[in-house]
Design a protein around this nucleic acid. Structure first.
Lengths: 193, 193, 193, 193
DNA sequence: AATGAATGAGAGTTCATTCAT
DNA sequence: CATGAATGAACTCTCATTCAT
């Protein structure tokens, strides 16, 4: 158990280092040796936990994406009303993107770049299902526009990524009232009528 | 003049090759030698037109960003009403993102990645001014929500990037009516009341 | 210990190869790949022992200069008389320059060329101190001309470099009696009266 | 004639640039393009005057060596006495090495480095003949030690090279009286008895 | 399980040289 | 005679990966 814990710690340290370095330097310009150094292990040790660099970044992506969705749905239950459920999920996502910006930035980079391979991208998407289910329910109840889920996501969720990047670059700072404004814009863009 | 034209052609070929290769492989995994080969020049020739790889990608970014904004504002004049002007610009941007998706993808990758240096990013932003001016006018006339321009951009424009990426990945296809839906969502998200 | 020895061996092999190749081809025209090949290591291995090519040649210079001065002062003690001490040192230097001509040639090339950086040149000079001390003693005792140490070195020691180069080029060969002649010339050029 | 003069000017400008750049950076790290730039010509133009880089540096060497010997023997005639002749030549050489130090440094670098090919080195040596003739005369008259000319050169002339380098590096400065000291050391080292 | 040393392959970049003009 | 543009070849250096320990 102690041994297992040590292993998990090392794996986590490697993933953490990967996120930080890829965020700051990009996937290129992030050598394995630097990841190893930041995680306080030997370069060779990485290969005990991951097959190669591609596998490391794929697994990191899935890890972070999983964290993201767990966080998003943590306080949601499907007994909530559509509107309430959407608000709960949206605000958790906003929290994640704005507070855990290291993780969120990493996802943004992966989602706009050909560094993650297709199977891993698919794997990452699966966990969003509860939100899609909620939207289906909303459409059936006539509360949400009968549009493609891609359109709903583009208008309701994706803007938060842009705001997160802008905030990270120091361009501006989102406060409480602005987040409320943003939520209203999100809801307005998908609600029926 | 013939010589000058040949030079311009070579520069353009290099920029085109850079866009295509970076889109498909990322900035890493795009060696200068491949760019040269695709542009039908020797690797050494690149260095007659650009200082180094960083300069090449910076200049490519500025070039594409300039094309993007020229395209966006081509049919717009500031004598148009706020709503009309916004529609004109939005639809041009949609055209660009969905039809010139190679260029648009390149911008998305650059904007979510640390590959472009700060001065070049700033340079690229400058050209968006007419849209920001339009929004200021809209705010004064009480037609557009009094929100940060970052919020307006996040909801009115940025979703198109997400849709472009999704379309590029073959996940779905935007048709005429969906674009109309998208425009309505965009306008709803920023219009006052 | 075995590992450490292997490391030292490799470093020495690299330094040896550097000397031989730079002597024959000059610093330019001595690619790292040839040094690596002659030392039976991969080019990449050089960079485990030296920061870059400049560092390699700097360190080689300091190494050889240190050997040179150790050799020169090996049989000298400051209890010797000035004349005896000078003879002992001079003959050791002559031995070094004429027998270890690979090393001596390397120093000559470095001292007449801008390939070694200033700090390393300074570092190399420090070790000559015992000779300068001897000369100071000689001046105080009225045995050695009261001239700048540079002049003393120019006439007493430096001619050996010229003779070494000439001999290396096969132009002529120094025998025992000529070395004795040379020593007399050296001593005559610095002795007082 | 005007045309011919322009050609000679260009050739001279190239040689001057070569000396300065090789002195400061070494033969390596002196690209043809920089030589061209400093001489205010196109890189291609160099090849109208010299076969290639090796030929350029060879010809530069011979040029400078010729200047050197012309300078050395300018005021000497073989009707002078041995001692007077030696003093005249020695002082001219001293003048050259200490005043025309750019040229002298270039020669020192070439003479301690494998950058000049053997035929050009031989060509350069030929012009020293008058000094060797003088020494032969001195030996026959019993005024100069019966030693190899290499030894005589090593002690009588070569120290000036060392002093020139030291002075160039700012280590010390030769004044009139020191030059007189140096001359005495030179003469003492070769004069018979 | 963990490593430091080692490396082959390949990266970005430079440069001596050529050639169409 | 002179050139600026072009380039193949070669350079220094890096890095993902392996392996003996």
């Amino acid at each position: 158990m102690a041994q297992l814990q040590k292993s998990i710690d090392k794996r986590n340290a490697l993933i953490k280092a990967t996120i930080e370095l890829v965020n700051n330097n990009g996937f290129h310009a992030t050598p394995m040796s630097k990841i190893a150094k930041m995680a306080n292990v030997s370069p060779a040790t990485i290969y005990l936990y991951f097959e190669n660099k591609q596998d490391l970044v794929n697994k990191t992506y899935i890890d972070v994406k999983t964290q993201y969705t767990h966080y998003a749905f943590d306080t949601y239950t499907d007994t909530m009303s559509v509107e309430q459920g959407f608000e709960v999920i949206w605000k958790r996502i906003a929290d994640f993107k704005l507070n855990e910006s290291e993780n969120a930035m990493f996802l943004a980079q992966c989602d706009n770049t050909p560094i993650i391979d297709e199977p891993s991208l698919q794997e990452g998407i699966k966990h969003l299902q509860p939100l899609l289910d909620l939207w289906e329910r909303g459409k059936q109840e006539g509360l949400i526009k009968d549009m493609s889920n891609y359109l709903l996501y583009a208008y309701a969720i994706n803007p938060l990524s842009f705001l997160m990047m802008a905030q990270k670059r120091g361009a501006f700072q989102l406060d409480r009232t602005q987040i409320e404004d943003a939520y209203q814009s999100a809801w307005n863009s998908i609600k029926s009528k």
